[in-house]
């Protein structure tokens, strides 16, 4: 992601719509929301109880980070009345900007879940590092804050990846998810990911097109909210 997009001057924003800079922030927010949503599908049914508690925390921090990015995007949106919840729930599925990587339902496959978790955290660290250097102090500040919590995610992801390294199903899952994982990052950041995880670059599964799984996810995610439009919950 280019820094210019995050700090585009206010004049370039079109009246009454979400400005392009906020749209970039929405990519981050949507990735975290949808991945957090998918990870929370494990709450209550993780492989063992201690891990269940740990993985629920990860899902919660992801949703928490999504909320922080949505709040920032809402502040950068000129139209009043848009809040984090409206951005998270009240857009059409086609308006979401998350990468296909985070959309897939992986329950009850723990090998693929950990493969995605590990690849995501590793890629996210690269992205967050770049955002910490953003010219927009709000973006840089938030990235700094988020990075502190992500440290625990990375610890957890590395611990698991290390443990499952010799499992054929884990290695297969990493192979399978690799092109989508690359699609999380801007092209310029991908070499770094290849370097850290020790894999060759391949053609990325790019952000832009959604998988078929996003719409049913959205239907479920918004069903209560849509049942009484405009209500407070």
């Amino acid at each position: 992601m280019s820094e210019e997009d995050l700090i585009r001057p206010a004049g370039s924003r079109s009246e009454g719509s979400v400005p392009e800079s906020a749209q970039r922030i929405l990519e981050l927010a949507d990735d975290e929301l949808i991945l957090g949503w998918r990870n929370s599908e494990w709450t209550g049914i993780a492989p063992f109880l201690e891990e269940d508690v740990a993985f629920s925390s990860i899902a919660q921090t992801e949703i928490g980070h999504a909320r922080a990015w949505y709040e920032l995007a809402a502040r950068q949106t000129e139209r009043g009345g848009v809040d984090a919840d409206a951005l998270a729930f009240d857009r059409d599925p086609d308006e979401y900007r998350c990468a296909p990587f985070v959309e897939t339902r992986l329950v009850p496959d723990w090998a693929r879940t950990i493969a995605r978790h590990w690849l995501y955290e590793t890629a996210d660290a690269i992205r967050i590092e770049a955002l910490k250097a953003s010219g927009d102090p709000e973006v840089a500040g938030l990235a700094e804050k988020i990075d502190r919590e992500e440290t625990y995610h990375r610890m957890h992801a590395d611990m698991w990846a290390d443990r499952l390294r010799d499992e054929a199903r884990f290695r297969g899952a990493v192979d399978e998810l690799w092109p989508s994982a690359l699609g999380l990052l801007e092209p310029g950041q991908r070499d770094r990911l290849c370097e850290i995880v020790g894999r060759e670059p391949v053609e990325a599964n790019e952000r832009g097109e959604h998988t078929e799984e996003l719409r049913p996810l959205w239907e479920e995610m918004t069903m209560v909210r849509r049942s009484v439009p405009g209500a407070s919950w």
């Binding site: 949503w37 929370s40 599908e41 709450t43 209550g44 993780a46 109880l49 269940d52 508690v53 629920s56 925390s57 899902a59 919660q60 949703i63 928490g64 999504a66 909320r67 949505y70 984090a84 919840d85 998270a88 729930f89 479920e220 995610m221 069903m223 209560v224 909210r225 919950w233």
Partner: peptide, 22 residues
């Protein structure tokens, strides 16, 4: 948890279910 109507409710419900597993 998957249908919670706001981010706050989703977080709180996840935390509650997490406590129960704990």
């Amino acid at each position: 948890i998957l249908r919670a109507p706001t981010l706050q409710r989703k977080l709180a419900l996840t935390a509650k279910v997490q406590d129960e597993v704990g």
